[in-house]
Amino acid sequence: MEINDFIKCVAEQYEEVDAQEFTPETKFKMFEEWSSLTSLSIIAAVDDEFGITLKGDDIRNATTIQDLFEAAEAKA
């Protein structure tokens, strides 16, 4: 799993934010459109794309995309 593919997968779950804005340091829960639906979309999309099942708590404990990537890698 490459960090860039992971960022792209997360970015695709946002409707309003431009994909260019996402970097490993992006605090992905700070955007106005963030909701539990975004969270569940990320969980499902990461599962589809990388076969890794994140939990609600992984999302809760992560601040940046890098944090989430590391949580996903730990489960790979």
Partner: peptide, 8 residues
């Protein structure tokens, strides 16, 4: 199994 967080 619903993957909700404690806050939710």
């Amino acid at each position: 199994s619903l993957s909700f967080s404690e806050d939710e």
